Simulated scan of single mutants.
Amino acid sequence: MTDTRLRVMPATRLPAWLDRTMAEYVASRMQAGETREQAEANKQKSLDQWFPDGSPADGHLVWDVLDQDDTAVGYLWIGPFAPGGTDWWVFDVEIDEPHRRRGHARRALELGHRAAAEHGATSIGLNVFGYNTGAQELYAALGYQVTATQMQKPLV
């Protein structure tokens, strides 16, 4: 077990983080097969729903993931999938490249699970793109189960 901890992301860091995570979201959706226009539309929908006025929606939690030296090595964002709901979602979890494969993501998710339960969540889900096999392995090891599979075949 690592000495990984979560700290509420300071409001001063939120705008830069939001820009970064949304840019990564667009890139991931494009890598998964969407056009830039589709990915940008999905980004805007997410921002409108989950970050109205640039702040997390009610009940959403955004943390810095800290290592044993209190250095931010990544982030975790969780919250209810519907306002006031008990079904929660891992909207984003990312550990910076130099700090991966040290247990930070696993521990951050475990801490996030506990916080979600303390806030009344009865389940937590997530989406993982098909190309991200390392993340799929971690989620399976944490007890996540596949609830749906989307498949696509390019025709050109």
Rank of each mutant, 00 (worst) to 15 (best):
E37I: 08
G79D: 07
R5Y: 12
A117L: 10
F129R: 02
P56H: 10
E118K: 06
Y139H: 02
D92Y: 00
E24V: 04
Y75R: 13
E24C: 04
I78D: 08
L109Y: 14
A140T: 03
A41M: 11
Y75I: 02
P52Y: 07
L111N: 10
R102F: 05
D58F: 07
D53M: 01
G79S: 11
P15V: 01
Y144I: 14
G130T: 04
A108L: 11
D96A: 13
Q31F: 00
L6C: 05
E97C: 10
Q68E: 15
E110C: 08
F91A: 00
D92W: 01
T21L: 02
E37D: 13
P56L: 13
W88N: 02
I78V: 13
R100W: 08
Y75H: 11
A27M: 09
K153A: 08
K43W: 13
Q49P: 02
R7F: 07
T86D: 15
Y131S: 06
A105S: 13
Y75Q: 08
A121D: 01
G84I: 05
N42P: 02
A39V: 03
K45L: 15
V73H: 04
G54Y: 01
A115N: 05
F91L: 01
A115V: 03
V90W: 00
A105I: 04
G130W: 12
W89P: 00
L155H: 09
E37C: 03
L111D: 11
N42G: 14
G59V: 06
S28Y: 06
G103T: 12
A16Q: 11
G59I: 06
L6Q: 11
L109V: 14
V62N: 02
R7M: 07
V65I: 13
R106A: 14
L18G: 02
R20D: 15
D67A: 03
W50E: 12
G112D: 12
Y144F: 15
D53Y: 04
L14E: 00
A105W: 03
G33P: 00
V90K: 00
V128L: 06
D70K: 04
A108H: 15
Q145P: 01
R102T: 08
P83S: 09
A115G: 03
R20Q: 14
A108P: 12
F91R: 00
A72P: 03
D58M: 07
A82Y: 05
T122L: 05
V156N: 13
M30K: 04
T4Y: 14
E40K: 10
D19R: 09
Q152G: 06
H119Y: 04
A141E: 14
